[in-house]
Computed example of a mutant assay.
Amino acid sequence: MNKYSFGSSGSPKSFQAYPRAVEFDLESGTTRRARKPKNSPFHPTKMINSLRTRLQYYYKMHPLLVFIIFLSLGVTILIVLSLYESHYRMMGSYQKLDVSSGDYPFPKLRNLVMVAGHSVYTSSSCGQADKEDSWFLESYQKNPGQAATFIRHIQEGVEIAAKDDAALLLFSGGETRKDAGPRSEAQSYWSVAEFRGWFGMEENVRWRALTEEHARDSFENLLFSVCRFRELTGMYPYNITVVSYDFKEERFAHLHRSAIGFPEPRFFYIGTPASQTSKEAALKGEALVRAQFQGDPYGCQGSLYRKKLGRDPFHRSIPYPNGCPEIEGLFRYCGAAPYPGSLPWS
């Protein structure tokens, strides 16, 4: 008797008791072909027609219910798409800022000193900064001593920054005057400070004095400077000090500060007087502008918005809020009520 190991090449072939594809009937002793399962063909057209017929039936039976279901479905889809779009846009903004804290130019500075610009310097020499004809002045600014008030603001900003080693000094103001050419208010102020040797504090202040060159009104002076601070330091300011005219204190310290929700104990205002010849007119004009901001805190409607457009003669693209994605909602918001979203400093 031959012995075969399992799996060996010489093992006997398996025996097929019954032919494949047939069934053996034990009672009759006969064979018959196995039944092949019926494959029901897929007919998408029939399925669609069937679904449409059912929907038409349900709509005839319950028209209001079907309408509500479809309306709810449509609204849900829109909400989901909106959330995804917002998410990916925010992620794109964060990817643009994918830098470590060591890559920011001024990561150790934590306080903001902002000097609001009021005019563009047009003279070829900064040695005449105290002359009115060296600045591009609007009709209401053409008063003796007006140029000196600009220099006073610049000097105040430098002196405040010099007393605070953790302060970043920003001159804020865009290219607001067409006839002055593509020169910004911020760069004008920085150039005057440079010519004046930073009022004897160059070594201490110059390296941390920069510009914000897109603001078109006082609210943007504040908001854009906060965003610029974030671009340069990687964080938002702990304290904010604003330098401007004394008659604008209510506008900055209350209206604008409240609009961005910044804590009052950490907000400081340094105001200097207007020239004697322009003081009365300045107070009247300020009362009007303040009333406009009370009704439109974000300057996004009506006369304030039109004025802002007029102060952008060269159609500069504003880069914000790319540099401060955490407050993108604040930049997009427009309403009479305070911004309802969360803020990094609140």
Score class of each variant (00 low, 15 high):
residue 4 Y to K: 02
residue 172 S to K: 00
residue 188 S to M: 08
residue 186 A to P: 06
residue 261 G to A: 00
residue 173 G to P: 02
residue 133 D to N: 12
residue 123 S to D: 15
residue 6 F to K: 08
residue 137 L to F: 04
residue 47 M to D: 10
residue 320 Y to M: 12
residue 131 K to C: 03
residue 202 E to G: 05
residue 56 Q to L: 09
residue 303 S to R: 04
residue 138 E to T: 07
residue 129 A to L: 03
residue 49 N to Q: 13
residue 147 A to T: 04
residue 114 M to P: 04
residue 263 P to E: 03
residue 151 I to C: 01
residue 91 M to H: 11
residue 304 L to Y: 01
residue 184 S to T: 13
residue 301 Q to I: 01
residue 121 Y to H: 09
residue 170 L to V: 06
residue 194 E to T: 05
residue 189 Y to K: 04
residue 19 P to H: 01
residue 308 K to S: 14
residue 222 L to S: 01
residue 205 V to F: 01
residue 115 V to G: 03
residue 232 L to C: 06
residue 258 S to A: 14
residue 281 A to Y: 01
residue 323 G to R: 02
residue 270 I to S: 15
residue 36 K to W: 02
residue 70 F to Y: 11
residue 334 C to Y: 06
residue 247 F to W: 08
residue 313 P to R: 08
residue 320 Y to I: 06
residue 62 H to R: 12
residue 334 C to S: 02
residue 66 V to N: 09
residue 38 K to M: 12
residue 278 S to C: 11
residue 14 S to H: 04
residue 286 E to Q: 08
residue 283 L to I: 15
residue 30 T to Q: 11
residue 133 D to H: 00
residue 69 I to R: 03
residue 95 Q to K: 07
residue 267 F to K: 10
residue 224 F to K: 07
residue 97 L to R: 12
residue 82 S to N: 13
residue 65 L to W: 12
residue 67 F to N: 13
residue 305 Y to T: 01
residue 142 K to M: 12
residue 338 P to C: 11
residue 14 S to P: 00
residue 198 W to V: 05
residue 178 K to Q: 13
residue 167 A to H: 02
residue 216 R to H: 08
residue 179 D to E: 15
residue 71 L to R: 00
residue 17 A to I: 14
residue 51 L to W: 11
residue 102 G to E: 14
residue 278 S to E: 15
residue 332 R to W: 04
residue 17 A to S: 06
residue 156 E to V: 13
residue 203 E to V: 06
residue 68 I to S: 01
residue 132 E to N: 14
residue 81 L to S: 05
residue 224 F to W: 12
residue 153 H to G: 13
residue 210 L to C: 00
residue 15 F to P: 01
residue 8 S to E: 12
residue 140 Y to V: 11
residue 59 Y to N: 10
residue 62 H to D: 12
residue 85 E to R: 10
residue 40 S to L: 06
residue 309 L to F: 01
residue 103 D to Q: 13
residue 151 I to H: 00
residue 25 D to W: 07
residue 307 K to F: 10
residue 173 G to M: 10
residue 1 M to K: 00
residue 262 F to R: 02
residue 22 V to I: 15
residue 331 F to Q: 03
residue 173 G to Y: 10
residue 321 P to S: 05
residue 95 Q to G: 00
residue 148 A to G: 04
residue 172 S to T: 09
residue 84 Y to K: 06
residue 341 G to H: 05
residue 333 Y to W: 05
residue 257 R to T: 05
residue 333 Y to R: 00
residue 171 F to C: 03
residue 144 P to V: 01
residue 315 H to C: 11
residue 89 R to D: 10
residue 139 S to I: 08
residue 224 F to P: 01
residue 288 L to R: 05
residue 274 A to Q: 14
residue 283 L to H: 06
residue 263 P to K: 01
residue 37 P to G: 07
residue 329 G to M: 04
residue 162 A to G: 05
residue 122 T to Q: 04
residue 305 Y to A: 13
residue 312 D to P: 05
residue 193 A to I: 07
residue 195 F to Q: 09
residue 51 L to Q: 05
residue 32 R to I: 07
residue 160 I to Y: 06
residue 223 L to H: 01
residue 206 R to S: 09
residue 39 N to S: 13
residue 97 L to I: 11
